[in-house]
């Protein structure tokens, strides 16, 4: 039984549709890279001035142009850009004196450490609260949960972060206010882990609140839709307990749209992470982005835009692929 179910699941995943989706996603990524290239070229200012610095005459400028291929036609430059991106070369960061890829790689783990736990906590908490508030539709509890969800949805990430920082850290002194680890350094093993977790709690909590409302409200609405269906009445008549009915029979079908929302919200989550990292002085990609703006480090900025866009495209691809496998009604 279990084997045949999983076999069906995988047979729905692969096939013509999948190949088409992969091709579409690759084309989309190509277009994003081209878009990025033209964004650089539309920007005001001659890159030569930037490369040559203050000094230099026309002869020197021409030399620089030839060296960096800036005298080539636009399409040739586009081709050079595309092939270097394909090789994994995103350019050179002048402010860090390193390749953009290594600058970004050095920061990416800190941001992932923040984002991944927040996704898990927000989705499990959101689904739980959504189911419970659907169970008590229109009760006081339902209304209170919904109002708080809307409130969380109406505050920008940085306001939530600042308010949490103010009350839980500065007033009550429960958590450290800034950074990823204590400045004193040299902690090892368990004490390092607790130090890290206490620094992560507030930024992570902020990101949970940012995502919670959307997941909760969708889970509630989907549950209400599913609970109207005949098979639920049948299960209830058969004598299935209410909790089992909600969490096993109904949730299975209600979860499908919720999964897509969790997947497609990556862009919002990354933007939220930038703001939260700013508030808590957390050394991740968000801080890198702000430093790049201050230092006018365009290669880093544009690479971050490109990478987040590609991330969203891939997340959309994954949700689109998983969706029909979860829901046999969709072809």
């Amino acid at each position: 039984m279990a084997v045949s179910v999983s076999r069906k699941f995988f047979s729905r995943l692969v096939g013509v549709r999948l190949v088409r989706r992969i091709a579409q996603t690759l084309l989309l990524i190509l277009l994003l890279i081209v878009f990025n290239f033209f964004l650089i070229h539309l920007a005001p200012g001659d890159p030569v001035n930037y490369l040559a610095g203050q000094s230099g005459d026309e002869q020197y400028f021409a030399l620089i142009r030839a060296k960096f291929g800036l005298d080539q036609p636009l399409l040739t430059q586009l081709w050079v850009y595309l092939s270097s991106v394909a090789r994994g070369d995103l350019g050179y960061s002048l402010s860090h004196q390193q390749s953009v890829v290594s600058v970004i790689l050095a920061r990416v783990s800190a941001t992932l450490l923040l984002i991944i736990p927040s996704i898990f906590i927000a989705s499990s908490l959101g689904i739980l609260l959504g189911v419970e508030s659907a169970r008590r539709q229109n009760s006081v509890v339902d209304r209170v949960i919904n109002l708080f969800a809307l409130l969380g949805h109406s505050l920008p990430a940085f306001s939530i972060g600042l308010l949490l920082l103010l009350f839980l850290s500065l007033q009550l002194g429960l958590f450290p206010a800034q950074g990823m680890t204590s400045a004193s350094g040299d902690l090892k093993g368990l004490s390092y882990a607790t130090d890290l977790i206490s620094h992560l709690t507030l930024p992570c909590l902020t990101l949970v609140i940012v995502q919670l409302a959307q997941i909760l409200r969708l889970a509630r609405a989907e549950m209400l839709n599913v609970l109207d269906e005949n098979y639920i009445t049948a299960a209830r008549a058969k004598g299935v307990g209410e909790t089992r009915l909600l969490y096993v029979h109904a949730l299975r079908n209600a979860l499908i749209p919720v999964v897509t929302v969790i997947g497609s919200d990556l862009g919002m989550l990354l933007s939220g992470a930038v703001l939260v990292e700013t508030v808590f002085g957390y050394p991740g990609l968000g801080r890198l982005m702000l430093e790049a703006i201050a230092a006018r480090d365009y290669p880093v900025l544009l690479s971050l835009l490109l990478l987040t866009s590609v991330g969203v495209a891939v997340a959309n691809f994954l949700t689109d692929t998983i969706y029909p496998a979860l829901d046999p009604r969709i072809k």
Partner: peptide, 14 residues
């Protein structure tokens, strides 16, 4: 596809 916040940030910076 491109997250609005990042796009606005980059375009404003450029």
């Amino acid at each position: 596809i491109p997250p609005r916040f990042f796009l606005a940030l980059v375009v404003a910076a450029l």
